[in-house]
Amino acid sequence: MKRLLLLTLIANLVLVSCDSDKPYEVTPDSVGPLTKNTTLDELKTIFENDSVVDQNSGLSEELNVNAIEIYEKGGAQLLSLMPVKDSQPKTIRTVQIFDERYTTQEGINLNSTFKDISDAYEISRIETLISSVVVFVDEINAYFTIDRKELAGELRFDMDAKVSQAEIPDSAKIKYFMIGW
């Protein structure tokens, strides 16, 4: 009986230490402790040591226009979550990452460059917007926004130009890092 209790205690310690070793890991199915199946009701428990700011109420909840923001105690924003509008229970559709500690298994985070992304993953597609370029990496359900200011010459100002992977400088910095499920 004592041996069984000791084994159970050791197994629980191992599981708890594994979970706490990677609280900022980004995978195709998770961002830290969040998964694509995490419900909004679970957020207060998951981030019990942080602040969960849910701006969805009344009309804004029906229109799904406000995100749920997660702040670390002390005020730094960690994440911004956009719920799935029509799911029951409500789950998370997209996660915007604000903290550079959130890192993929290949070492990509907010401090990475376009070269880091293209060396680590296959770029699925690139969409050109008015003030930015969005780089999609389907392998990890991620997309990275790069400001047009990072582009060379006329690509900065030609809003109609379609930007290719070869035209994005290796040193271009990530402006936004998002996961979409």
Rank of each mutant, 00 (worst) to 15 (best):
V84K: 12
E154S: 10
E48K: 13
T39F: 09
N64M: 07
E122D: 10
K115W: 04
R148W: 09
F98K: 13
L43A: 04
D170A: 12
V16D: 01
L63D: 04
E48I: 05
L129Q: 09
P169V: 06
V31K: 04
K2N: 11
G75K: 15
R125V: 04
V134F: 04
E106A: 14
F144H: 09
K44F: 05
A152Y: 05
I130Y: 14
S51Q: 14
R3Y: 08
E106I: 00
R156C: 06
L81V: 09
V95I: 10
T45S: 04
I126Y: 02
I92R: 13
V53L: 08
K36L: 05
Y24N: 15
S118Q: 07
E48D: 12
T8P: 00
L40H: 07
I68V: 12
K22L: 11
N49C: 02
W181Q: 14
A152V: 07
K175H: 13
R3I: 12
S131P: 01
P33A: 14
K149Y: 03
C18W: 10
S30F: 02
I126D: 01
S17Y: 03
L13K: 10
S171T: 11
V26G: 01
D170L: 06
T38N: 02
R3Q: 13
G58D: 05
K44Q: 15
Y176A: 10
D19I: 15
V26D: 02
L59H: 05
D160A: 10
Y143M: 11
P169Q: 07
I10G: 00
L129G: 11
E100L: 03
I92Q: 13
E150P: 01
A120N: 02
S51Y: 01
G74T: 08
S20E: 04
N141Y: 15
V14E: 03
P33F: 09
D29A: 05
K149R: 11
E100P: 15
I10F: 11
T113C: 09
L4K: 11
V31R: 09
L13E: 08
V137K: 06
V16R: 00
Q55Y: 08
E139G: 03
V31S: 06
L9P: 00
V84S: 09
L6Y: 02
N37G: 05
L5I: 11
V84N: 12
P33Y: 13
